[in-house]
């Protein structure tokens, strides 16, 4: 590729180099008449070069049309990974979900979504993401290792086949007698689901001491077990060990500092420690991230109640009544009303 210049000395006496016309343009390096000069300036571009240039322009337009989608996926991934590194898994899940919506086959986005959903305890999305990348070649060994480690731990959240058969024999998990749990766990202590279910039943029966000791056993096997950590966060508070409750909430928040549930549990423990201002700040942050969550609104109502801000408490309860109509939400708010009416302790 060269850019070759001609620099002939301008001689007024010379006729046009191209056509011989004596009337040449003056004060320019090459003797050319105006017509030939203009023709040289507009030196013809061959049709095949025009077609080639047109093709390149079309490709450029195609690229510019596709660029926003490609950049959006890349940005969602980058921002999601940044949030993941800061243990902000709610934000991370939002970005990875957006990336997967744009490109459902994107293995990297799906792998990161699996990690985020695990720490958000969203096991339905966890399984859906896993199905999307099943039988696909995954190139990032480090990322795959993390996904596999978490996938191995999801078994802790599902009943084994043998326990599932037992569960089916009863109307609900609450109806299963303690002796059945104890016998089953004695003979099958390799799956944590049954232990977690039993710990939860003990908690519901207000047997906090046994619930606490069973959760310790679960956490010895899986120190990130969300169910056991949240049970501890509540049980310790009811055992009047609010400091300890805060410790377990902090363990969840260390894993996922955007966990609204852990934040609210911590706020309730702080209320017990009479650290109402800290509790209010935490719940307000949780509400900012999710303003419709029943547990967050219930905790906010409790904070207002213990701050003697009755008008705001009632306004929150009123708002919650309009928004939440399912049985879980009803149960959550029933506890708030019971605390307000001194039927329950914090």
């Amino acid at each position: 590729m060269q850019d070759i210049q001609t620099n002939e000395t301008a001689l007024p006496a010379k006729p046009c180099l191209n056509c011989g016309n004596p009337d040449v343009v003056k004060d320019v390096p090459n003797a050319l008449c105006a017509v030939c000069r203009n023709a040289a300036i507009r030196f013809p571009i061959p049709i095949w070069v025009k077609l080639f240039g047109g093709g390149i322009l079309l490709l450029m337009i195609f690229s510019l049309i596709n660029l926003p989608a490609s950049l959006t996926i890349g940005l969602c991934l980058e921002r999601g990974i940044a949030a993941e590194q800061q243990h902000k898994f709610v934000t991370a899940q939002r970005y990875f979900t957006q990336a997967v919506k744009l490109d459902s086959a994107n293995t990297e986005a799906n792998e990161h979504l699996i990690i985020a959903t695990y720490y958000n305890n969203d096991l339905v999305t966890f399984l859906q993401s896993g199905n999307r990348i099943a039988n696909k070649t995954l190139d990032d060994d480090e990322l795959l290792g993390r996904v596999n480690a978490l996938a191995a731990k999801t078994g802790y959240y599902f009943a084994s086949d043998s326990f599932y058969t037992i569960e089916k024999a009863y109307a609900s998990a609450d109806a299963i007698p303690d002796s059945v749990y104890i016998n089953y766990i004695k003979n099958n202590n390799d799956n944590l689901y049954e232990q977690t279910m039993f710990a939860s039943t003990l908690f519901d029966h207000k047997d906090y001491r046994r619930c606490d000791s069973l959760c310790h056993i679960i956490l010895n096997t899986d120190d990130e077990n969300f169910s056991a950590l949240t049970l501890m966060g509540s049980a310790k508070r009811f055992e009047n060990q609010a400091d300890s409750a805060v410790y377990y909430c902090n363990r969840i928040l260390y894993m996922n500092n955007e966990s609204g549930y852990a934040g609210c549990l911590k706020a309730r423990a702080l209320l017990k420690l009479k650290r109402n201002d800290e509790a209010l700040k935490i719940v307000m942050d949780c509400k900012q991230a999710d303003s419709t969550n029943a547990y967050i609104l219930a905790t906010l109502a409790l904070v207002y109640h213990f701050n003697n801000d009755i008008a705001k408490r009632d306004a929150v309860l009123h708002q919650a009544e309009r928004m939440n109509t399912d049985s879980t939400a009803t149960e959550i708010f029933q506890y708030v009303y019971d605390v307000i009416n001194n039927k329950e302790s914090l």
Partner: peptide, 16 residues
């Protein structure tokens, strides 16, 4: 750069 840009992320980043 413009022509390669939308393809660069799938090829060099996502391996897809």
């Amino acid at each position: 750069a413009i022509i390669a840009m939308p393809a660069a992320l799938p090829v060099f980043r996502f391996n897809s």
